[in-house]
């Protein structure tokens, strides 16, 4: 039950994030949408690792079946990678706001004045 709910939430987050990404014109809004979508994908992996009534994959912590540790470990990596990408993207947004004075995708796509 929990696993299915979490997987469904992950998919829903992915969908709403991607929808924001393709519909909003402001770059930072797009990045926010991506943030939510990537969070959905990460949650999906954790949901796949989950088992009904599972305990954390730590020895000596509770009894009974444990969750699958491998996807959880992968997810740690994915979270940090996503943060790093996001930081770099935001830096580029700052740069572009400074040089082009806009965050609107349609305006950014017009050719800049400088060569």
């Amino acid at each position: 039950m929990e696993g299915i709910a979490a997987a469904a939430l992950g998919i829903a987050l992915g969908g709403s994030g991607l929808w924001t990404l393709v519909r909003r014109r402001n770059v930072i809004w797009k990045l926010l949408g991506l943030n939510v979508a990537a969070g959905g994908a990460i949650l999906f992996l954790v949901a796949v690792a989950h088992r009904p009534g599972a305990r954390p994959a730590i020895e000596g912590l509770g009894s009974g079946p444990a969750a699958d540790p491998l996807p959880q470990a992968l997810v740690l990596t994915a979270i940090v990678i996503h943060f790093a990408t996001l930081a770099l993207a935001l830096v580029y947004v700052i740069f572009l706001t400074e040089h082009r004075h806009t965050q609107d995708v349609h305006k950014l796509e017009r050719e800049p004045e400088e060569p």
């Binding site: 696993g3 305990r55 954390p56 740690l76 979270i79």
Partner: peptide, 23 residues
Amino acid sequence: FLAAPDVALTEAAVGFALVTFIY
């Protein structure tokens, strides 16, 4: 709740704190 305390901690520290800060 999904028995992933490591992920929860990392999400709270990176996904919540750092990401919100930089935004």
